[in-house]
Design a protein around this nucleic acid. Structure first.
Lengths: 243, 243
DNA sequence: CGCCATTTGTGCGTATGTATT
DNA sequence: AAATACATACGCACAAATGGC
């Protein structure tokens, strides 16, 4: 028999809502079988039989797990173990930011705080583990940003790549994903405060200052450069609060 | 008519899965009506009619939103705007940690890295804004921890409160919630590496060192104290990796 | 207290869209 | 091109929980 049981659960218990129970069992199944991202899971019908629940309950449970990127559903193909990204964090924080952004942008300000804290706090380690290869890559990205800014174009993708590359040598996946997540939140929420084009030019130049500080191996200089890099967005937020 | 439309969507489009479309409309509804956490939403039946979808689709959409804590469903009562906590981050990261913890605990190690980076990076601000009231509270918590540790009892709740109180004066909700989220992940995942009782005693004492550094207004001393505070858990992780 | 209306939770049948073979 | 396997969507009926009367 292939019954999936998270816990022995004797006869008449009330383990909460059905979908929660089913979700727990699916997670148990993944753990017990040592499944990795991309591995396929049983079909809905099989899951129904295994956990003893109806399709509705199984579907709702799977949808919750897919929202957390613990599983990934591909229409007409099957259900697979997800890549466990921080997409849920992005969506949740983005919505909070949009909701708060109707008046002030205090959530956006907090996101900027966290980004700056993380990057400044990691400044010493970044300099310690930096190799010439990454340094060259960062420099090239700064060039590209300045070029795009000069043409009045936005450089969102380049900016995102820059901040990821900056922390990549640390070898900490979680920090990288958090960085990208907060970047995405800012990128989605920030446009509600229409930043001037001047700010973009300044921001581009501030990335070069970061590269210089990294190359010089100056920890305090890097921290200062990071702080100045976030100054324009902070000013934009403050501007809205006053108005 | 009370039709909820996120976008004009002309006749025959393919706006992706039904539940996604419905979820977007529900979020739109919350935004447009400036609803706050705790406010009630239309019933499932009303949502069905408003968005023109079946109850199954609406339910799946609502379940996804509830997983992100954007809405909160109370059986027999109704659906409400959620408190938008970071519960989804906790659940996702916890599962990742448990999955990786089957062999090494690299996810747990990354969580510790982030916690330490945040607290060290905020050390200067913490000292700057600290008042005597919070300082007394932290000292009392350190006392309690040492007392509990001496009796061989665990002090999880006290530890959690300590780290929250430490960063509370900063007035940044997001940082506070992230701190609590990562703390929860560590509290759930760490028990899979059975930490010795000695470590608990040491950890309790290290909290007192943090209090002293804060009181002394010594930024670098505080950062060092924070680093040493995380040393035992790091050692436990390293121990498992070797074995 | 019990009763009852409201609302969400669960189960099931069926038809449709999608991808692989 | 056809067949197969699978997820998607809809609709209905009933169960369970909550709150007010």
């Amino acid at each position: 028999m292939t019954t999936i049981d998270a816990s022995p659960l004797r006869g008449a218990e009330r383990p909460g809502p059905r979908r929660q129970e089913v979700g727990a069992k699916i997670k148990e199944y993944i753990l017990r079988n040592r499944l990795k991202p991309g591995d396929i899971l049983p079909t809905e019908a099989e899951l129904c039989e295994a956990v003893g629940a109806s399709r509705s309950s199984v579907r709702e449970a799977v949808k919750i797990l897919s929202a957390l990127d613990i599983v990934e559903v591909r229409h007409g193909h099957g259900t697979f173990v997800g890549r466990m990204s921080l997409a849920a964090l992005v969506e949740g924080l983005t919505f909070r930011g949009l909701l708060s952004g109707e008046e002030d942008h205090h959530v956006l300000g907090q996101v900027v705080d966290v980004r700056q804290t993380l990057e400044q706090g990691l400044a010493a380690q970044v300099i310690a583990v930096l190799d010439s290869e990454h340094q060259a890559a960062l420099s090239a990205l700064a060039d590209e940003m300045e070029s795009l800014a000069a043409q009045g174009m936005d450089f969102l993708d380049v900016d995102r790549t820059f901040h990821v590359k900056l922390l990549e040598p640390l070898g900490n996946d979680l920090i990288l994903q958090l960085t990208e997540a907060f970047w995405q939140v800012q990128a989605i929420v920030a446009p509600t405060l229409r930043t001037q084009q001047e700010d973009r030019l300044i921001t581009a130049q501030r990335h070069r200052a970061i590269v210089h500080a990294v190359a010089a191996g100056n920890v305090e200089g890097l921290q200062a450069a990071i702080a100045e890099h976030y100054a324009p967005i902070r000013a934009s937020i403050a501007r809205v609060v006053q108005a």
